[in-house]
Every structure is written in C-alpha cells, then in structure tokens.
Simulated scan of single mutants.
Amino acid sequence: MNDSASPLTAERQAASAPRSRARRIAQLLLQGDRPYALYIAFAVLLVVFSFASPWFLSIDNFLNIGRQTALVSIIAIGMTFVIIARQIDLSVGSSLALSGMSAALAMAYIGDHWLIGAVAGIGTGALVGAINGLVTTRLNIPSFLVTLGSLSAARGLALLVTTTKPVIITNDSFISIFGEGDIAGVPVPIIWTVLAVIAGILLLHYSVFGRQVYAAGGNPTAARYSGIDIRRVTTLAFILTGVLAGLAALVLSARSHAARPDVVQGLELDVIASVTLGGCSLFGGRGFVLGTLLGSLIIGTLNNGLVLLGVSSSLQLVIKGIIIVAAVAFTKK
C-alpha cells in the first residue's frame, strides 16, 4: 500500500510545483494595497503617448527611457529599504556627486583602472550611508535632519575637493562597463538597473534581512521584543542605499566621461517620488521592489512623453507633480 502511494504522492507534488511557483510570482507582482493601479497607470501612459506621438512606440525610445531612468531606479531600490524601515534619506543626490568625484579622482591619482574607480565610488557611497545610519540610530536623531545635514555636507565636500571643477575620465574600460557599453544591444545602464532590481528582490523578499526590515518599520516595539537589532537593520539599510548611490555615480560619470560636483541636484525628490508612487508607505512597514521600479518607469515615461510632445519644462513640472500626487492618493491605504 505504501509502495503504491509513494509514486502517487510524488506525482501530485510534481504537479503542484508549477502552481506554487506561479502563486509566488503573482504574490511578488501584486503586493501592496492596490497594485493593479500601478499597472493600469503605466498602461494608460503607454497608450496615450503612443497615440500622441509617432516616435513614442519604438525600441530606441524605450531604451532611451531605460537609460534616463537608470539613476533614479538604481537608487530607489535602496531607498525602498530605508523607507520600509520607517526612515528617509535626503542625501542620495549629494552622495552620488561625491561618489562620482571619488571614483574619478581615484583613477586620476591612484591608478587608471576601472576597478579602482568602482571601489572608490561605491565605497564612498557606503561610507556616507554608514554615517547617516550610525548618527540616526546611535544619537537618536531623526533621519530627516541627519540626511538633510549630510546632503549639504557631501555636496560641499564634492565641490571643495576639486574647487568646483569637473574631473575628466579617460579610462575606456570604465566608460564601457558602466556607461556606454551594451550587451546584446541593451545599454549597460539598463543592465545595471536590472541587476540592482534582482538583488533588491532577493534581499527584501527572500532573506532574513528583508523580513527584519519589514518588522523594524511595521512594528518597531514588537520587532525589538522579537530580538531584532533595529539599529543594525536601519544602519544596513542606509549603507545599502549609499552603495547603490555609488553605483549610480559610476553610471553617470561613465556616460558623461567626467565627474562633476554639481550634478543631479534634486535627484532625491524623484527617488522618493518613485518609491512612494510604487506603493511604499512613508510610515514604514510596506513596499516592494517591483513597485518601486514601476514607479520610476512611470515618472520616466511621463517625462519622455511630455518632451516628445514639446511641452515646456515648467509645464512638465506642474503636470508631473499633479499626476504623482493623484496617483499616490489613489493607491494609498
């Protein structure tokens, strides 16, 4: 009897495995309170702009959107962890500028090798993130104030180290790996974005650290009684955001062939908008990586479509602001 039941049980388990994987994928895609609203909003934008502009629906334009949104998307993955942990990081734009300067200066004065620049850039971003996390958690100062201070300090340091002058990058490998190369026709900024998204999904949704981030932001008191070191988890979330800001700095510097201390001022606003538009709660405990990516793509598609339609930059800001507020209001709990 046992011998006949065993193969039957194995067959049932094998048949249920694809359904189980499909359910996990569906759960990943449909997190949040009204996840369908994000997909509907994105689809509506695609339809509207495809009718409004004959150049919108083209592979080249979609690749252009991917390149344009790469910086925001990469950093927003890290910001998702910070906001889920009930914190905020206003320093990511300045951290990016300082990280780019560090990478360029390292290749100029230490060794003209792309790996030296990569380590210097990402290391600088991680250091800024660590300072933000440690000051926030150890001195018990609100992260809004801490990162507001580091926003100014990091930008000022980036301006100071080169007396406001750009640093030219001539390393062809660095430029190809992070900025102008491609894999099977896909530009490397998009490749780095995809890798950041995959890493973010695995870390947030399939690791102990990810569950601790949700717990720290959702119910800090219960998390503390459960033995979770909230200060450690929060600090690591800030470090992760700094690392991704450093990666974004490498992408921008490679595309520009130079590092400038005055770049991407106000980038943090687009990053935070992408995360909140993607379903992340500013009160912590809620959010998912694919939602953040979709939020970034919605903003990028909106910018791209308005440019193709010839809308003035000032009116673009007004339209984008209204749509973001309306979308967040519709998707909020």
Rank of each mutant, 00 (worst) to 15 (best):
S20C: 01
S313I: 12
S58R: 09
L309K: 09
I40Y: 10
R260N: 11
Q13H: 06
L71Q: 14
T292V: 02
I88V: 15
G278V: 03
L302Q: 05
V194M: 05
W55Y: 13
R21P: 00
R23G: 00
F81E: 02
G210H: 11
A196E: 11
I116D: 14
Q13L: 15
Q316I: 06
T124K: 08
L145A: 07
S94A: 10
I75R: 02
V186H: 03
L63Y: 13
A26R: 10
L28C: 02
R21T: 12
Q31L: 12
T164E: 07
M101R: 09
E11S: 09
A5E: 15
V119E: 11
P166I: 04
L236E: 10
A103P: 05
M107F: 09
I75Y: 02
Q265F: 03
G284A: 01
R23T: 13
A108S: 15
L306M: 12
A153Q: 05
V307M: 11
V243K: 01
V161E: 07
L115Y: 01
V307E: 14
A154L: 09
V311P: 08
V119I: 15
I230C: 00
L247Y: 00
K332C: 00
H257Y: 15
G111A: 15
T170G: 09
G287N: 06
F144C: 01
V233Y: 03
I175H: 04
A106T: 13
G133K: 08
L277V: 12
S94R: 11
E11Y: 04
L28I: 09
P54A: 06
Q212R: 14
R255L: 04
D262M: 02
G284R: 00
S91W: 06
N2T: 07
V128I: 15
L127R: 03
K165L: 05
A10W: 13
V311S: 08
L277H: 05
G117V: 14
V48C: 12
D172H: 08
A76V: 05
A17Q: 15
L293E: 07
L297N: 09
H257S: 13
G246D: 10
L294R: 03
S274M: 14
R155A: 08
H257T: 12
A199M: 06
A154E: 03
N2Q: 11
R255F: 06
L204W: 14
V307S: 09
A106E: 15
L240N: 02
